[in-house]
Amino acid sequence: MKFYVCIKMVPDVAAPFQIKDGELIMDADRMVLNAYDASAVEEALVLKEQHGGEVEVVCIGAAKASETIRKALAMGADKGTHITTSGDEGFDSGSYAAILSAFFKDKEYDILSLGKQSQDTDSGLTGSMVAQMLDLPYATNAVGLEIEDGKLIVKRQGDSGQEMIGLPTPCAVTCSNDMNEPRIPNLKGIMASKRKPIDTVELSSLELSEDELSPASKVTSYEHKPARQAGKKFEGEADEVAREVAQLLDTEANVL
């Protein structure tokens, strides 16, 4: 099985940041492998260990993004491709999906996997966009993956429970971070990663049109959320206050 895992370098959402005149200011050193993508890498590695094959990671980004590729290689991925950009194009999900589909259109693979969303923006659009552009059968929000008779069996979290979906290969899948605990690279993995190949692909070589690349959406500004206020406190006979609050959740808070 040939796995391609698309990974992204994103801000550490736990790192401190500021908003100044609507702009988000973050420490540039606090960039990490997107947690959902780390789960996708982990799952591909587990399936490779069980069934054999090769795991290749693909990352779009500026020069610094190669650190994220090294991280995935240190976890155990076999090789990486870095699609290089300036990093300040303001790409949106559609731009990333267009780049990935242009890259994959002449590639051979069985399973194309991605994190289900980026931890900074939480949009969750790129995966199904890529599947559509490449005309691949797909499943999103996977919480478990297995390979059975050359098919990918996806357990996904849906609206009314978990669904088991069988996908013929080649296919695409987006991964939840609830599917596994990504391994922390050990020293041996880190040393080995330095000898693993990273191919560099210039964005221009993918011959995408201005129209395909230009983002349809842009963030115009950021703002803080209003702070929370304490609400009502109910003290008294347990039976009475419990029923009163239950009723209020229905009639006043409207959340039932």
């Binding site: 988000l24 900074d120 939480d122 963030v219 115009t220 500004s221 703002e223 959320k225």
Partner: peptide, 11 residues
Amino acid sequence: VMAAKIMGNVE
């Protein structure tokens, strides 16, 4: 965005 710590205005 950012783990729901802040809001982004999107066009």
